[in-house]
């Protein structure tokens, strides 16, 4: 298996390099998609299925889609005219840094295990049995709350600055409609399943939100969904619902137990599922709007 790992690592490097050095945009993005899938595969090899799922769906899939949309709207790239000396200096420095990192990771002091015993000891009180979900929504829920704030801040930025006049995709024709009829409900089902599953097995709000976003994107490409036609207020409310629920829950928990984000005893699972439900809807909507853009408040002419 070591040989497989070596080949996979080499393939990742080649894909990464080709994504960054392809002369045309389509080639670069195709390289990036392949790169993302290979990386997801390597996460599986390293026993990180949650991360692999998220990488495939969000890191590779959604980012690739965003890139493709942008590439379609931007002028083709000009050829790089970087002085050779600068190139050489950059290469030297990059090799130095990568080499330093490699040397550093090769003689790491023996594994210092800090988190494992703590997580194992507290998992019983966290209300869920999937340790990653326990970390994300209980032990380090503050990070997740702020992460939702990042999503929302990005959406504010995209809404304020996205290109004016989002082009509406052409309807994909009658053949596509039956596909949509299956796809849309299925994505909702799968998202719900992932959400429920997240408590015990790999999965959770982010993966569920990504799947939901996939279903919504299918509707969007089918022409069945036009965010630009919907008034901005409700859309914002949808996107903000998850984080608002999360923040309200954090404060409510503080009122109930005296500590921020400390869920009342025994009710952890219910709180976590409620928060995750809100998050899933908001993540799905936010990711979709990050893709399609949205008009802000009607201020735009």
């Amino acid at each position: 298996m070591i040989v497989f790992d070596l080949m996979l690592a080499a393939a990742i490097l080649v894909a990464g390099w080709s994504a960054l050095s392809a002369p045309d945009r389509t080639g670069a993005i195709a390289g990036f998609l392949v790169f993302g899938l290979l990386v997801a595969l390597s996460w599986v090899r390293l026993d990180a299925p949650d991360v692999a799922l998220a990488e495939a769906a969000i890191g590779s899939g959604l980012t690739g889609a965003l890139m493709l949309r942008a590439a379609g709207r931007m002028a083709p790239p000009a050829a790089d005219r970087v002085p050779r000396a600068q190139r050489a200096a950059a290469a030297l420095l990059a090799c130095g840094l990568a080499g330093g990192l490699a040397v550093a990771v090769m003689d790491l002091p023996g594994a210092t295990i800090v988190y494992d015993p703590l997580v194992r000891a507290d998992l019983g009180q966290s209300g869920v049995s999937n340790p990653v979900t326990a970390v994300l929504l209980n032990f380090r829920a503050w990070d997740t709350l702020l992460e939702m704030a990042v999503l929302l801040a990005a959406l504010v930025l995209v809404a304020a600055l996205g290109p004016r006049g989002t082009p509406r995709p052409a309807r994909l024709g009658p053949l596509y409609t039956p596909f949509l009829r299956i796809m849309a409900p299925l994505s909702v089902l799968v998202a719900g399943h992932l959400l429920w599953l997240g408590a015990t097995a790999p999965g959770g709000a982010f993966q569920a939100g990504a799947v939901l976003c996939g279903g919504l994107l299918a509707l969007y490409f089918g022409g069945a969904l036009r965010p630009a036609a919907v008034p901005a207020g409700p859309l914002w409310a949808l996107c903000a619902a998850g984080v608002a629920v999360f923040a309200a829950a954090a404060l409510a928990a503080e009122v109930l137990t005296g500590t921020l984000l400390a869920y009342p005893d025994g009710a952890d699972k219910i709180w976590i599922l409620a928060i995750e439900g809100g998050l899933t809807v908001s993540i799905g909507a936010t990711l979709l709007l990050l893709f399609t853009g949205l008009r802000q408040g009607g201020a735009r002419a």
């Binding site: 800090v114 703590l118 032990f139 380090r140 829920a141 503050w142 137990t257 400390a262």
Partner: peptide, 11 residues
């Protein structure tokens, strides 16, 4: 300690 989880695990 947020959530009652002390550092290093909690924040």
């Amino acid at each position: 300690a947020i959530g009652g989880w002390a550092a290093p695990l909690g924040i």
